[in-house]
Amino acid sequence: MRRRLLNFLVLALLGLGSLVMLLPFLWMLLTSLKPFPELFALRFLPQEPTLDNYRQVLEQTGFPRWFLNSLLVASATTASVLFFDSLAGYTLARLRFPGKNLVFLLILSTLMVPTEMLVIPWYVMSAERGWTDTYWGLLFPGLMSAFGVFLLRQFFTTLPQDLFDAARIDGLSEFGVFLRVGLPLVRPALAALGIFTFLGNWNAFLWPLIVVQRPEMRTVPVGVALFSGEAGTAWNLIMAASSLAVLPVLLVFLFAQRQIVEGAVLTGVKG
């Protein structure tokens, strides 16, 4: 009886916490269905639900182009991070060469540098090379991740060395060993890193705001932020655009919940 009561209390607390977490998203969705005069009526449910806010966002703004820009940047950086970080992690974990530990420490040291300190050098380099207002300018800061190198290196070190030795004896090249033996064994870490990278680049705001000036090159976070200005804030459009922008994030979480949990566990346990 005591255990049942304890389980009930735990479930009740978890349910309450879930409700608190979901309430802002529910408020955003309901507000996106309200006509503009109802926004300041302090009613939770819309009295006259309408899809006009979504129509304005999709037809009268550049949101479709912003959505495609964000999708392209997030997908390209995720693919690049998965390949280059796994290659670097394998090299640091399985190959022997002078200065290997020093290289790994230098990579880790970059994690201590805040992104805000790198924005100015990135922008100066982009301006000198003509990368502003281009997809390459949006992409290049996120093509590799020190965190990804650390995560995959730690995971590669836990794999049995005999598997790699057997593959070399069978005649595989070093890249073949990495591609056909190493990568399949670190699939959970790759999935977790891919999810974190995609979400981070989808929600990126500071760098796209700085490097992009043309409206058609904006990403979703930058475009949505511009609905608020000195003349006022179009909360109805902000809520509608935010509801559309959160769809890819929800899909990622729905289809990759297990990998997200595994990734959180791997970052703290493996090593």
Score class of each variant (00 low, 15 high):
Gly232Trp: 10
Phe140Val: 10
Met112Tyr: 11
Asn201Asp: 10
Glu262Ser: 11
Leu71Trp: 04
Tyr123Gln: 05
Ser109Gln: 12
Arg4Gly: 11
Ser32Thr: 07
Ala74Gln: 02
Gly223Ile: 02
Ala264Ile: 13
Pro121Trp: 03
Leu58Glu: 04
Val249Leu: 10
Ser70Ala: 10
Leu111Asp: 10
Gly194Asn: 10
Leu244Arg: 05
Val124Tyr: 09
Pro248Arg: 01
Met1Glu: 14
Ala191Pro: 04
Leu183Asn: 02
Arg258Trp: 09
Lys100Ala: 15
Thr134Glu: 15
Phe196His: 01
Pro64Arg: 03
Asn201Val: 12
Ser173Trp: 05
Ile120Pro: 06
Gly17Asp: 05
Ala231Glu: 08
Leu13Asn: 04
Leu106Pro: 00
Met217Pro: 05
Leu209Phe: 10
Gly263Met: 05
Gly182Leu: 10
Trp122Ala: 07
Leu108Trp: 07
Leu163Thr: 08
Pro160Thr: 07
Leu16Ala: 15
Phe255His: 08
Leu82Thr: 00
Gly182His: 09
Leu250Ala: 13
Ala12Thr: 12
Val10Cys: 08
Pro184Ser: 13
Ile260Asp: 01
Ile107Tyr: 05
Leu226Ile: 06
Gly268Asn: 13
Tyr54Glu: 05
Thr91His: 03
Ser145His: 03
Leu183Ser: 02
Arg55Met: 07
Thr31Glu: 10
Val124Pro: 00
Ile120Lys: 13
Arg129Lys: 14
Gly229Leu: 01
Val20Asn: 02
Trp27Arg: 13
Ser18Phe: 13
Ala74Phe: 02
Gly142Ala: 13
Leu87Ile: 02
Ala264Leu: 15
Arg65Thr: 13
Leu72Pro: 00
Phe140Asp: 07
Leu152Glu: 01
Val246Ile: 15
Leu226Arg: 14
Leu237Met: 13
Asn236Asp: 15
Ala225His: 01
Asp162Phe: 04
Gly194Lys: 08
Ile238Gln: 01
Pro35Cys: 09
Phe140Ile: 12
Tyr123Lys: 03
Leu179Pro: 00
Ala146Asn: 07
Ala127Pro: 00
Pro184Gly: 14
Val124Ala: 10
Leu29Glu: 01
Pro184Ala: 12
Phe8Gln: 11
Val124Ser: 07
Ala240Asp: 09
Leu244Cys: 09
Ala264Glu: 08
Trp66Ala: 01
Arg43Phe: 05
Ser243Cys: 13
Gly130Phe: 14
Trp66Phe: 14
Arg187Ala: 14
Gly130Met: 12
Leu87Ala: 11
Leu58Cys: 06
Arg258Ser: 12
Asp165Leu: 14
Phe227Pro: 02
Pro208Glu: 06
Leu58Lys: 05
Val222Met: 04
Ser242Asp: 07
Met112Arg: 09
Ser173Gln: 11
Asp133Trp: 04
Leu206Glu: 05
Ala225Ile: 00
Pro215His: 09
Ala41Arg: 12
Arg218Asp: 06
Glu116Tyr: 11
Glu262Pro: 02
Phe198Glu: 00
Ala167Asn: 02
Arg3Pro: 01
Arg43Cys: 05
Leu159Ile: 12
Leu247Lys: 03
Leu151Trp: 01
Pro64Asp: 04
Asn69Glu: 09
Leu163Gly: 15
Asn69Lys: 08
Asn69Asp: 10
Phe63Tyr: 15
Ile169Ala: 10
Gly148Leu: 06
Phe97Thr: 05
Gln47Thr: 09
Gly263His: 04
Phe67Gly: 02
Leu247Ser: 03
Ile195Gly: 06
Leu179His: 07
Lys100Glu: 11
Asn236Gly: 15
Ile120His: 11
Ala93Ser: 13
Arg4Asn: 11
Pro46Ile: 04
Ser32Tyr: 06
